[in-house]
Design a protein around this nucleic acid. Structure first.
Length: 301
DNA sequence: AACAAAGCCAACCGCTCGGTA
DNA sequence: ATACCGAGCGGTTGGCTTTGT
């Protein structure tokens, strides 16, 4: 500690809370020169801070698009859902919450939500086999270590601050049957493409494909574990808000929304296979993503 | 009113990642 | 292939504020 203090004194850097004057210098500099080059910024701007400190101050506090205020109930729900899927990837979570920073979300989780979940756990001790919602099931490393906390705050206005987060790239779903189902669908799709290219081979393709397909029984497997190996990008996150009942593939085959069935009308066998897929999907009574995620939190209220 | 405990959150720290030479 | 560097991320700390006694 003493050595640390000496080192700081040696470099002549300020530490601790930022003053209004420092804030103004930083804001003015970034207004003129833009963000980035944080390492050189303090020297050029005349600040006695390290680049890291400047970056943090700007991103978490000084940026003009940050609107401060309490987190609304809706925002809290979204945080919980996203955390269930992403673990402690605060920057990713913050990217989906308008006007919020990762640091703010992290603090809010540790002081509010984490505590609520902990209390809930104590209320219903291990009688349930369900994992704690604040723990990332695929990576326990991201479990919340010290949920402390306190009751709430309320709404603020907002818009997105930043979305970049590179460490988590994929999400996996654990149902061992899910890959089989995906294989079946993909194989049939491939078969259709091949058939389009060379229609005379339809029968051979059908035979070959059906022989190599893994068996998958939808009736015996939980359809909610259908999702697998998605790229963890903006498209995936948008997926969270998808209502699957509205997607073309889940509509009646007579509709115009399904390219697979409309562009290959000469192959009865393939159409039959596709319509079987669709029938199975319809029979699933496929839930919305909201209810899939929501079911994980039904006990949390 | 005074003190202690608990809570909040800005800031710091160490590690990792991605780009580049 | 690898070493270096800048930037970003999540975990943790500590000082200030709020609440309870």
């Amino acid at each position: 500690m003493e050595a640390k203090v000496l080192a700081v004194q040696k470099e002549g850097l300020n530490r601790g809370a930022w003053t209004a004057g420092e804030d103004k210098i930083l804001i003015d500099y970034i207004k003129t020169h833009g963000e980035g080059k944080w390492r050189n910024l303090p020297k050029k701007a005349g600040l006695k801070r390290c680049g890291k400190s400047c970056r943090l101050r700007w991103l978490n506090y000084l940026r003009p698009d940050i609107k401060r205020g309490n987190i609304s109930h809706d925002e809290e729900e979204l945080i919980i859902r996203l955390h269930r899927l992403l673990g402690n990837r605060w920057s990713l979570i913050a990217g989906r919450l308008p006007g919020r920073t990762d640091n703010e979300i992290k603090n809010y989780w540790n002081t509010n939500i984490g505590k609520k979940l902990q209390q809930k756990q104590q209320q219903y001790p291990s009688s349930s086999s369900r994992k704690p919602a604040y723990q990332c099931p695929e990576n326990p490393k991201f479990a919340v270590k010290k949920p402390v906390s306190q009751p709430g705050k309320t709404a603020r206005e907002s818009y997105p601050i930043r979305t970049k987060a590179t460490k988590c790239t994929k999400v996996f779903v654990t149902n061992p049957e899910a890959p089989k189902f995906v294989q079946v669908v993909q194989k049939k799709q491939m078969m259709m493409e091949t058939s389009m290219a060379n229609r005379s081979d339809d029968q051979n393709v059908n035979k070959e494909t059906s022989e190599s397909l893994p068996e998958f029984n939808l009736e015996e497997n939980d359809p909610s574990d259908f999702m697998i190996d998605f790229e963890m990008d903006e498209h995936f996150l948008s997926f969270l808000n998808t209502d699957f009942a509205e997607l073309p593939n889940f509509e009646d085959t007579s509709g115009g929304g399904d390219r697979r069935s409309t562009r290959n009308t000469n192959s009865e066998e393939i159409n039959l296979l596709i319509s079987e897929d669709k029938q199975k999907l319809r029979e699933m009574d496929f839930p919305t993503m909201d209810s899939i995620i929501g079911s994980e939190f039904e006990w949390f209220n």
